[in-house]
């Protein structure tokens, strides 16, 4: 019980309002120190980006009937068409191939969301970034969170495929959980880097979209890797995107991803985080000027 009865409600004893109780600009410290300090601050803002991401998914489809399920529906239509046609073209067992394409595309859509939509992750934060001192990395967290939410919608499709084709992946499917976590962690580095580069060089935005489209056909997501034949198949193993898809897809199809895929995924995670955090730390004080 407060004794200062006459102290007005706004007095200094009132709970802390307003953002960032102190700052020094330019930010002091090495690039990594700056990036880590901002990550910690961004993590503390979990209630801000957590809620923003949630309502953004809801708001975007406000005037539609089935909302974010449109994503699931369009992906589902794509899977049905691709699964049917390509199983004939590639002379594959229809049921198997349908399941393969569906699961592949679900994993791929998460990965490609990090890049194609990641181009707007920093840009979209303009009203906030130009009004208060804000850790830009929180925009990346927001983006990754939205990607996870959309993946949740896509996962419904996976369940439908599993039930529809009467397929039991067994306990191996649980390996998809660490795989998914590793893929999302990779997504932080990817989105951060893509977000900064697209903010600085806007030409990168359409370039990223076409690059990902091409990558979808280069990476074995619509066709199994062995179709390339023994001479070419090894080339695919140097495509990091392939391994990132694999660590989620294979367990869901009841197969254990090979050790090299886990190593690749951990490798890209370390490299991705080092590169993006270093770049972020170097540019932190310039980012506001790029809006």
């Amino acid at each position: 019980m407060s004794l200062t009865k006459d102290s007005p409600s706004w007095s200094r004893e009132a709970p802390a309002h307003g953002r960032s109780a102190r700052f020094t600009a330019p930010s002091p410290g090495s690039p990594f120190a700056i990036a880590i300090a901002d990550s910690i601050e961004a993590a503390r803002l979990v209630n801000v980006w957590g809620y923003s991401g949630w309502v953004d998914v809801v708001w975007r489809y406000r005037r539609t009937k089935i909302g974010p399920l449109w994503h699931t529906l369009s992906l589902g239509a794509f899977v049905v068409v691709m699964g049917t046609i390509w199983s004939v073209v590639l002379d594959q067992d229809p049921e198997n191939h349908f399941r393969f394409v569906g699961t592949s595309l679900i994993a791929w859509s998460l990965l490609s969301y990090f890049v194609t939509e990641g181009t707007h992750s920093m840009l979209g934060g303009a009203p906030t970034a130009l009004a208060i001192r804000y850790p830009f990395i929180a925009f990346t967290f927001l983006h990754v969170w939205k990607a996870v939410l959309l993946f949740g919608h896509h996962f419904i499709l996976y369940l439908l495929i599993v039930v529809g084709t009467q397929f039991n992946p067994g306990l191996t499917a649980l390996y998809a959980i660490p795989g998914f976590i590793l893929l999302v962690a990779n997504g932080v580095g990817i989105s951060l880097l893509v977000g900064m580069v697209s903010l600085r060089w806007r030409d990168f935005i359409p370039a990223a979209a076409s690059a990902m489209q091409i990558m979808m056909f280069v990476t074995p997501v619509l066709w199994p890797k062995d179709l390339l034949g023994p001479e070419l198949a090894y080339a695919v193993d140097y495509n990091p995107l392939y391994h990132l898809v694999r660590i989620v897809r294979d367990p869901l199809l009841g197969q254990l991803p090979p050790a090299e895929s886990w190593i690749w995924a951990c490798g890209t995670l370390v490299v991705g985080l080092i590169v993006s955090f270093w770049a972020y730390g170097r540019c932190r004080d310039r980012i506001a000027f790029w809006y």
């Binding site: 109780a21 330019p26 303009a126 906030t128 310039r286 506001a288």
Partner: peptide
């Protein structure tokens, strides 16, 4: 002074909770 722009030369530092009223409201959607 709000810390939105960092100085390209020199230094700015502030202690205290800051609120600003510029032409954009942070977070508006």
């Amino acid at each position: 002074l709000a810390g939105v722009y960092s100085p390209t030369r020199g230094r700015v530092a502030a202690v205290g909770r800051i609120s600003t009223l510029f032409n954009s409201t942070p977070g508006i959607n």
